Simulated assay, not measured.
Amino acid sequence: MLLLGSFVGVMAGLLGIGGGLIVVPALVLLLPQAGIDSSITMNIALATSLSTIIVTSGSSALNHLKLGNVDMFVIKWLMPGVVVGGFVGANLAEWIPTAYLPKVFGVIVLGLALQMLFSIKSTTQRTMPSSAKTIGYGSGIGLVSSLAGIGGGSLSVPFLNRHGVEMRKAVGSSSVCGCVLAVSGMIGFILHGYSADNLPAFSVGYVYLPALVAIASTSMLTTRIGAKLATSLPTAALKKIFAVFLVFVAGTMLL
């Protein structure tokens, strides 16, 4: 989990993701080895992933703020919707069957990856939607991200870049939104987890503290490496890396 956190930190700083797309599958494999009941493994993986994202995205966001990679319009209007959607998603996770969610999410991510690849050579500049529409998009990003236990970067970065936000600022702004989204989603999972059966020791609701501490302790140290890479790499190269990452994630979820 310490090694996992190191890798997640670099990816968070480089791509503006919270790391949930990496952490959730890894925890699903690792948690049973810690003796955690299989009936609650997925909920614990989702909740713990969101809690690690608070640290990872928070550290990444601070590094990007120092580097000037944050768009304040995005923070002002996208983040409120993300917060509301994140809290709603965490509450719906207890009631909505999520068997098909990975497939749906995989198709969405694959579409975003293809759009990102096609936009590398495009010179078309779009502007951000109105503030009301941006809040609406943020709510959708927050809802899907919370249900999937991720920080939303795989959705918000392509969305922002598609609407004219320069790639580095899209990554930095996504880090800020991802941190706040994770707080909202984690609170929902903690509240629902208190009434769950077979919770392991050292857990707060569905959040498993040993995994949180291990992953967060290394990820917060390595986000600066990813943030510096994001600043130094050409925009086209950054788009290619992000698109390849999205294709990998989409393939994993679809399969």
Score class of each variant (00 low, 15 high):
155 L>Q: 06
163 H>R: 13
180 V>I: 14
172 G>H: 12
165 V>I: 09
156 S>P: 09
154 S>D: 10
171 V>A: 07
168 R>F: 12
178 G>N: 05
165 V>T: 13
159 F>K: 06
160 L>D: 05
161 N>P: 11
166 E>D: 15
158 P>M: 03
181 L>E: 03
158 P>F: 05
168 R>C: 07
180 V>W: 04
163 H>V: 05
164 G>R: 00
166 E>A: 14
157 V>G: 01
168 R>Y: 04
164 G>E: 11
176 V>W: 02
171 V>T: 06
169 K>T: 10
182 A>D: 02
161 N>S: 14
168 R>Q: 10
154 S>T: 09
179 C>E: 09
165 V>L: 03
169 K>L: 15
165 V>E: 00
179 C>G: 14
170 A>T: 09
176 V>K: 02
160 L>F: 11
163 H>T: 09
174 S>E: 01
154 S>W: 07
155 L>K: 00
155 L>A: 13
172 G>I: 07
157 V>K: 00
168 R>M: 04
161 N>I: 03
175 S>C: 06
164 G>V: 08
161 N>W: 01
165 V>M: 03
172 G>C: 14
157 V>L: 04
162 R>F: 15
181 L>F: 06
163 H>I: 12
174 S>N: 00
154 S>G: 11
177 C>S: 09
177 C>T: 15
176 V>I: 10
181 L>T: 05
154 S>N: 14
158 P>W: 03
173 S>I: 15
171 V>D: 05
164 G>I: 09
157 V>D: 00
163 H>M: 12
154 S>Q: 05
170 A>K: 06
156 S>V: 15
177 C>H: 07
171 V>M: 04
163 H>Q: 12
162 R>A: 15
169 K>N: 08
172 G>K: 13
163 H>P: 01
172 G>A: 10
162 R>E: 14
168 R>W: 05
182 A>N: 00
175 S>N: 15
173 S>Y: 14
177 C>F: 09
171 V>R: 04
180 V>M: 09
167 M>G: 02
160 L>M: 14
175 S>Q: 07
174 S>G: 08
177 C>Q: 08
170 A>V: 13
175 S>F: 01
180 V>S: 04
182 A>F: 11
165 V>A: 01
156 S>E: 10
173 S>W: 12
177 C>D: 11
163 H>E: 12
174 S>K: 02
159 F>D: 00
163 H>L: 14
183 V>T: 10
156 S>H: 08
159 F>S: 12
157 V>P: 07
183 V>A: 11
160 L>A: 06
155 L>S: 10
181 L>K: 06
183 V>Y: 12
174 S>I: 01
176 V>N: 03
167 M>Y: 03
178 G>H: 06
156 S>M: 14
178 G>R: 00
162 R>K: 15
158 P>K: 08
176 V>G: 01
163 H>D: 13
178 G>T: 00
166 E>K: 13
183 V>F: 15
171 V>W: 02
181 L>S: 10
180 V>F: 13
161 N>A: 11
179 C>K: 01
177 C>G: 07
175 S>E: 07
159 F>G: 03
162 R>W: 15
